[in-house]
Design a protein around this nucleic acid. Structure first.
Lengths: 189, 189, 189, 189
DNA sequence: CATGAATGAGCTTTCATTCAT
DNA sequence: TATGAATGAAAGCTCATTCAT
């Protein structure tokens, strides 16, 4: 018998890949980095994965699957809806901490994140001030200014990235819908 | 047409860079592409910018600045807050269409976007069903199911990317705040 | 079928090697291909052969030996020379069909064969026309123009490859001899 | 102006490529070898050629073209056929010395040449002896035994490589024709 | 002995950057 | 200053070979 094919080796590699891709992003990641992190030689990676992209896909898939599996379990449990919602939120957020690298380095050009962070910061500040000026009537979702700032931030980011993620062909429609939704939200507070 | 003045060359380059980076992303962009688009030779770029990253920074900055300048103008105008909010939304979204490449190709590893889109789609579907189960009491922000789906999507994306963009040192606090905010939102509908 | 005895394993491997090297050439052949064709694992090949080149040598040797053994048997039989010549031709050509891969994939960079074929074709066409112009006196080895073209082709190829195969140190002498021979042949028809 | 694009650089590279490919064969040749031989960096090669194969093609083409151009000039000159034949032989062989690398390393797996040489040597020796046995009647093309050996060698090589170079689909027909031709040659002396 | 997973040197090719013109 | 040819480091991937099982 040859060195037995280790059932855990792919998982080992995916784990290393997850970490490295997460740290520095897809393009900046060098296969050798992953191999070193996994404690193997770079050639071995190609025993289990076809190429760099395949490995990335596997790592990303794995991360999401872990995340979604848990959500799905709860979402489909027989408990009352409200309880399920609470639990999904609970589980979702605690998993988010684990799965975050998935979004961090994996999807951004890590190099560029700083620029984005600062620009968003400035946009949010502008909007914060704008909404702070509004009379009491509006934005009664919350009266805590910190909470309000937070809401603004999540909404801004949600809108921008929803648009960015839209299919090119449907960007315009997506943006129009986003706008409509925001207008309604603002109108209703 | 007269040849544009030398003074305008950096702007010319930034414009080309903005377009190309936006189309195909940072890593996939080749300096020569930008030079060609700008109608100059690639060497010339290095007269005005230190390196590729510097050029990217300049292009991204320029895009955001254009965007923010407009928002700021309105936000700081002497009109009543409500009117300013309306105008900011109006201007913001119409500018978004122009500035979108900024987020699209510039910040994503475009290769990986498909994976993200599908994973988000599945997560949103799970949540849609979950909230659809909830009794009438809740989610009264909207009664239109399409609108609700949209709200869920924007919120999910907002939460995930807010977390992803947080400073590593503050990720945990950020996530906790996000969770709290979401719990409150859900509780209040 | 019973598993072939271990004693036959080298032969088994050589047979597979002969086929694969013959099909796709030395460089393009991957040890694993041969192992698969032989129904063994690639590691096993190294039990019987030192390395890829050694295996190639063995396979080529084997092919030639088969070929030469037959020729030798006849050549050294006690029959009259003319009969032996006839038989050698007979056997030689029928074996050629079997042993051809030896020359085909084994010795050419298969990639490049097309270039050689076309170049030879053009050279032969030039010579065909040239000799077709010659008065009746010459080339009386044959009067059939197809035959003549054939002769030219074999001679051209024979000359070129004889030169190509000569020891570097003796290339010049070889070429001079070839030239002399050809001149005599042409002169005598 | 930039470093001007040197008109002779492609020729320089081709020359180096011709030599290196010729020495050690296509697969064994490493781009860096060629670059070093040409006194440039390996990247520069890709300014003038698309890839390794393209460079090879260019080098082979160039060699043959030089060769064929000269042959063609003479073959198509208005002189009497006999004179043209003489000149073609003259020119052809003297060019052969220059163009030989074309066939040497370019078309053989240089590694394997030794094996072929020795095998051919043995085959020819067998045939030499066989024909030496023949009564006076035959082989009157020449009475010089050295000449005869030479003729045998050229013919053997011509036959083998003609077969090896035949299109796979027509190998059998080719071999049959070769056999027929040889039989006739031997019969007629 | 056989196995085939593991190794890692080595290859082609790309492209940011430099610098002779 | 502008040019673009030249550079050469660096990366993904292959595969002959080794060696733990």
């Amino acid at each position: 018998m040859a060195r037995t094919r280790d059932k855990e080796k792919p998982a080992q590699i995916i784990e290393a890949a997850f970490a490295v891709f997460g740290d520095i992003g897809y393009e900046a990641t060098v296969i050798k980095n992953i191999a070193e992190k996994a404690g193997i030689s770079s050639g071995t990676i190609y025993t289990y994965f076809n190429d760099k992209r395949d490995l990335f896909r596997a790592a990303a898939q794995e991360g999401w699957n872990r995340f979604l599996r848990q959500i799905r379990e709860i979402a489909e449990s027989p408990e009352p809806a409200d309880a399920r919602v609470r639990q999904v939120i609970e589980i979702g957020f605690s998993n988010l901490k684990i799965s975050l690298p998935l979004l961090r380095g994996m999807l951004f050009e890590s190099t560029q994140m700083k620029i984005l962070q600062q620009s968003l910061l400035e946009l949010c500040r502008l909007l914060d001030r704008l909404f702070a000026d509004r009379p009491e009537s509006a934005a009664h979702l919350t009266t805590d200014p910190a909470q309000q700032r937070f809401l603004i931030r999540v909404t801004v980011i949600g809108v921008l990235f929803s648009a960015a993620l839209a299919e090119p062909a449907q960007v315009d429609r997506e943006i129009d819908q986003l706008k409509e939704t925001i207008i309604r939200m603002v109108a209703e507070g």
